[in-house]
Design a binder for these strands. Structure first.
Lengths: 216, 216
DNA sequence: GCCGAACCGTAACGTACGGTACGGCTCGCC
DNA sequence: GGCGAGCCGTACCGTACGTTACGGTTCGGC
């Protein structure tokens, strides 16, 4: 398993001022990508470089703190499955799908993922792990209970929740994230996202919906 | 539509020596990611920096040439659908899925995509477009005729080939590519890839296989 | 055998940027 | 009112690297 404990609450004693600085860094990250310089961050945040280095150690530390700071904010909404029937299950799934599509198509997410991908493999920091843990893995942690509840209520039929989740993930995200990361202009309007979420949900239910006498 | 014409044959008059240099650059790219320096490439390729600049203009030119050089090599195998029945269609799809998984999990593809993602949004070059065109879009171009053939043979039922393709793409790739790009250690053995390809194919056929009286 | 073109190896230049140092300001505290 | 901590602004340092320049070598053509 990659990554030690990147999902522990990461707002570890950040002062308001520090959060403001990280917000500035984040904005700059969205605008300039990995090109941001310490000087630019200091300028944008109206703080001195000395402070930056005192608070965050070095450039990587600042980057990591920024990514964690944002990552801790983007958790997809919790949806719990009380009184589950097929309609509410479908609604929950659709909600997850829609939220997820909105997240991965947001400027912030794209910028963060770009930086994290760029840094992955250089071993220097673990931005990739942070992003992964707060993105894909956090989503799984939220969604799996819903799937389990659906199975328990006899609405879903699957052997392995992980596999089912990954299928759902694939049906929702398809080629969207990689295309956006690679710079493809993919206009995702509210409407398209809604349609895609509904389609993905229907397809998932077609594959995993419990129908008497069904394999796979 | 993003990207002008990155899929025109890109081996445009490259001498053997130049190809060798690009291969060296490619190896370095896999090893060091975007950290590669002109000096390092020159060293690895046993050529002078002057030559590098003469041939490729500048660093971005070298990077672009390297990416194009590799991209032009990784096309997934052509599969044409002659005498189509359900078994051969499934076999074709499975083959595509398997090939694609092998591609996106290869060191080279990961390195290339990382660099391209890192450069996307900086506007400076269009590595992202090149990778996209030779990856996801090339795959679509190869696969769609198969899907159309399947539909024509009454084996598949879909309204829009693009949508069907994207669903297949999602079922095959799921979270694999983004996890790999973000540095997750995801062991993809020959066996898992085979299994995933089969599963994705079965799921796709379950969704789009022509059965009398089926909507969606 | 001579010439020029292409290329190698290396040295040199300029700059951008990470990181550090320091003087001055503000402000809570005694 | 004095004092020290924390921070701002800025100047400064060192280095890595993109880019250029140049002397030396190889080699095909005459």
């Amino acid at each position: 398993m990659l990554l030690a404990n990147a999902d522990i609450d990461t707002s570890e004693a950040l002062t308001e001022r520090q959060k403001a600085v990280l917000d500035a860094a984040l904005r700059l990250l969205v605008e300039e990508g990995d090109h941001l310089t310490m000087t630019a961050v200091a300028g944008r945040a109206s703080c001195s470089k000395e402070t930056l280095y005192k608070w965050f150690g070095d450039r990587d530390g600042l980057l990591t703190a920024t990514v964690q700071w944002q990552a801790s904010k983007v958790r997809v909404a919790q949806v719990d499955g009380k009184g589950l029937d097929l309609a509410s299950l479908a609604a929950s799934l659709e909600r997850f799908a829609s939220d997820w599509l909105k997240v991965i198509s947001s400027d912030t997410s794209i910028a963060l993922n770009r930086v994290a991908v760029g840094h992955a493999g250089s071993g220097k920091d673990n931005l990739g792990a942070v992003v992964l843990e707060n993105g894909r893995f956090a989503l799984a942690k939220r969604l799996k209970p819903v799937l389990e509840a659906g199975r328990h209520a006899g609405l879903l039929d699957f052997a392995d929740a992980e596999t089912a989740f990954r299928t759902f993930f694939g049906l929702v995200a398809r080629d969207v994230q990689i295309r956006l990361l690679l710079g493809d202009r993919l206009e995702l309007t509210e409407a398209t996202i809604g349609g895609d979420a509904a389609r993905a949900t229907q397809q998932f239910l077609a594959l995993y919906g419990a129908k008497p006498g069904r394999g796979l």
